[in-house]
């Protein structure tokens, strides 16, 4: 049975101008030990999905429809008290820019110990400390650094500490929202390798969220491509990269320069992502799609299985 099953999740935000269709009918599953990558541009709804999974959406959000089944229970229906148990212990999250949210006046180790003690009141402080030392080893930090303050850490070390914190309560799922965006390439490379290794060692399931196709390619087994609040393609990483089915995926791939292979001219997509206050009718990608026809303007394509176990939402799959 899948560890996490998201069915038709729909989240709208109530704003002064009207309703923003942030996520519309997104479905996917996550198996134990699987690494899922959600890739898409800013405003495509990928962070909203993460927040919805933890029920941390802002007040003006309406989780309108859908189910989030975690270990057989619908998270959207749980009372707040039980949801608090699931956060961190069931599903934990590395927030975007979390490394800058470490409290500068407390020792890094103490901050993680506190997190453990809040969620496991029966644990003793000594046990918690031993646990953190173990976690530091796991993420490649010297346990001696436990008693240092955040300003004594470099950017990469802070990010490692944040990862350790996310793993502190042995969660089943860790969501990582742009875990390396603020880091330099060499540090990013190290962190991505560490995360991959940690995932293999602990068997935790990961959901990576990034705008960077290359980062996702490094860490994910399965990739979901999002566009304007919709999951437009979902499939094994290799399939997505070698033979994309959705025109948007193809466009994303050919918009990235690479340092390998032939230097080719980048194809740029015309136009801009749509205004989610008034998403276009039919397929949300049709105004920018080179293959769009009349049906694309009229009807919304469902997410359907395609060859090799992938799924795509397109009337004219490639």
């Amino acid at each position: 049975m899948a560890l996490l099953e998201v069915c038709g999740l729909t989240v709208h935000y109530q704003t002064r101008q009207g309703e923003v269709h942030a996520i519309d009918g997104v479905s996917f599953t996550l198996e134990p030990g699987e690494a899922l990558g959600l890739v898409g541009e800013s405003g495509c709804g990928k962070t909203s999905i993460a927040l919805a999974l933890l029920r941390l959406l802002p007040e003006n959000a309406l989780a309108k429809r859908g189910r989030i089944l975690f270990a057989g229970r619908d998270l959207l229906e749980l009372p707040e008290e039980e949801m608090r148990q699931i956060r961190w212990k069931g599903i934990s999250m590395i927030f975007q820019g979390a490394m800058n949210s470490l409290n500068p006046v407390y020792r890094v180790g103490d901050q993680i110990i506190e997190a453990i003690l809040t969620h496991n009141p029966q644990a003793s402080e000594r046990q918690a400390r031993a646990k953190v030392a173990q976690l530091f080893e796991l993420v490649g930090l010297d346990p001696e650094r436990l008693d240092r303050f955040p300003h004594e850490y470099s950017g990469g070390m802070k990010q490692r500490a944040v990862i350790a914190m996310a793993l502190a309560c042995d969660p089943k799922i860790v969501i990582a929202d742009e875990p390396t965006t603020a880091l330099d390439v060499i540090v990013q490379d190290k962190i991505l390798r560490e995360m991959r290794r940690i995932q293999k060692e602990t068997g935790v399931s990961m959901i990576y969220i990034s705008h960077d196709m290359a980062v996702i390619a490094e860490v994910a087994d399965t990739i979901g491509v999002m566009y304007a609040g919709k999951l437009v393609e979902l499939g094994p990483a290799e399939e997505i990269f070698t033979s994309p089915v959705h025109p948007y995926t193809e466009a994303l791939l050919s918009a990235f320069p690479s340092i390998h292979g032939e230097k080719r001219r980048l194809k740029s997509l015309p136009g801009e992502p749509p205004d989610l206050l008034h998403p276009p009718p039919g397929c949300r990608f049709h105004p920018r799609c080179p293959y769009a026809t009349a049906v694309c303007q009229r009807e919304e394509p469902p997410l359907e299985p395609h060859r090799d176990g992938g799924q795509a939402a397109c009337w004219h799959p490639l």
Partner: peptide, 8 residues
């Protein structure tokens, strides 16, 4: 260290 947009 540059990530490559190709899982292979």
């Amino acid at each position: 260290a540059v990530p490559v947009p190709d899982p292979r």
